[in-house]
């Protein structure tokens, strides 16, 4: 069988497991070293998702939970490309998103923040990248909110992203922040990443030119998944 190995995950590009300023990590961080097996077929293949699985409003969070109106808040589109470490587009990547509403409240039974729910907003959406790796969804800019960590810490405005590339080894869940948010450097979850230069890669940039005039501002956010060590063309299995 032909092998399609991925670059090893560069763990210094990710937060370590134990980050005591983010208190929830303290009892949930493994202490023992990870075991490194040889990559195998289960790692370099993964579940496949097709554009036909999406509902017409899946990528429009302003309208996809409408109770008769549209979601309240600053209307934005988030768009960008899904690439791999070799700068190649990753097509058909499933991106699931979830977020708080404009007041910083999640439509979730465990969220008790005093900001009100928005009857026209669930904060759940998804999209799939095109052949050139591009993706887009429309939403409202989520609000920041307080949470019990060191007294009352505040989360910067953020959108959670869950990404499936073409292989299980590329699986990733992360959070997107917004350019210019003064809460970013104050957040213990952001700061689980020790290097501010790495944090910058989680900050969506205002893309003023790509606004929808008189409708939505645009933010640009590119996503990079793990890349393979050899070309698809040399190693691609028949029919794979």
């Amino acid at each position: 069988m032909t092998v399609h190995p991925f670059y090893r995950r560069e763990r210094n590009q990710h937060p370590p497991a134990l980050t005591p300023n983010y208190k929830s990590s303290v009892l949930r961080a493994p202490f023992r070293p990870l075991v490194s097996p040889e990559q195998a077929e289960l790692d370099w293949t993964g579940p496949a998702f097709g554009h036909d699985m999406l509902g017409p409003l899946d990528n429009d969070l302003i309208r996809n939970a409408s109770a008769g109106g549209e979601a309240l808040g600053e209307r934005i589109i988030v768009h960008g490309r899904v690439l791999d470490e070799n700068a190649r587009p990753v097509p058909n990547a499933l991106i699931e998103v979830w977020q708080a509403n404009a007041g910083g409240r999640y439509a979730h039974s465990n969220d008790t923040y005093l900001a009100p729910l928005d009857p026209n907003f669930s904060g759940c959406g998804r999209t799939i990248s095109g052949a050139d790796g591009t993706y887009v969804f429309r939403t409202i800019k989520p609000g920041p909110y307080p949470w019990p960590n060191n007294g009352s810490d505040w989360r910067p405005a953020h959108i959670h992203l869950s990404i499936f590339g073409e292989a299980f080894a590329q699986r990733l869940i992360t959070q997107l922040y917004f350019e210019g948010d003064p809460l970013i450097p104050l957040c213990p979850i952001v700061n689980t990443i020790p290097d501010p230069a790495i944090v910058e890669r989680l900050v969506a940039r205002l893309d003023f030119k790509n606004q929808m005039p008189f409708d939505c501002l645009a933010y640009r956010f590119d996503i990079v998944l793990r890349g393979r060590r050899q070309t698809y063309f040399e190693n691609r299995e028949e029919g794979a």
């Binding site: 560069e10 929830s24 470490e85 869940i173 959070q175």
Partner: peptide, 12 residues
């Protein structure tokens, strides 16, 4: 390119 860094999936 460097892989996009992970962040916790959080409680929601």
């Amino acid at each position: 390119l460097k892989e996009t860094p992970s962040q916790t999936a959080g409680p929601y």
